[in-house]
């Protein structure tokens, strides 16, 4: 039982993977499914680089065991197709090195979905979960607000 075959519902597809119970969701999607968009930054829940969506809510995939994700709807950055938030990140120069970007975008994506009328306070509360070391956050703020306003 320490290793097991499980099914994960990722980006609309049912995928079969062999995992140890001790494997995190991050490890499984990167290592077993080759979805390397979610990044390790701390493996400790502190940086948000590994953020994916689970049942439409942001989730730090380093804080979740793969076995905990059975039966849940997982969306990774690879599952987003030409969403407004992706383009807004491009247009507003909301990234530099790009390492935090998948995590930030997944968090923003869920925010826009859950709180289409998010105010500054809500935006801050949500986006405070991720660290971007390159930008000063002004561009990320602009990107997310542009999308919220255009809805």
């Amino acid at each position: 039982m320490k290793s097991q075959i499980i099914e994960l519902y990722v980006n609309g597809d049912l995928r079969t993977v062999t995992v140890r119970s001790a494997d995190t969701l991050l490890y499984a999607i990167r290592g077993k499914l080759g979805l390397t968009g979610a990044k390790p930054g701390c493996l400790n829940g502190d940086c948000g680089a590994c953020t994916v969506n689970v049942d439409d809510w942001p989730m730090k995939s380093c804080l979740m065991l793969a076995v905990e994700a059975i039966g849940k709807n997982i969306t990774t950055i690879e599952g987003l197709k030409k969403t407004p938030i992706q383009q807004a990140f491009v247009d507003n120069f909301a990234f530099q090195c790009g390492y935090c970007t998948p995590g930030f975008i997944m968090n923003c994506h869920s925010l826009i979905h859950q709180h289409p009328d998010a105010d500054d306070k809500t935006i801050k509360e949500w986006l405070g979960s991720n660290i971007c070391r390159c930008t000063g956050y002004a561009e990320i703020e602009k990107a997310v607000k542009t999308v919220l306003e255009n809805q």
Binding site: R30, G31, L35, T36, G37, A38, K39, P40, T76, I77, E78, L80, Q86, Q87, F89, V90, D91, F93, F95, G98, Y99, T101, P102, I105
Partner: peptide
């Protein structure tokens, strides 16, 4: 303000960093 050449790679998770090579 020409958009970064690698923009699309970076917003789709396709940009690969060292650890992504396995």
């Amino acid at each position: 303000s020409i958009l970064r050449k690698e923009s699309q790679d970076k917003v789709t998770g396709r940009a690969r960093y060292t650890h992504d090579h396995h």
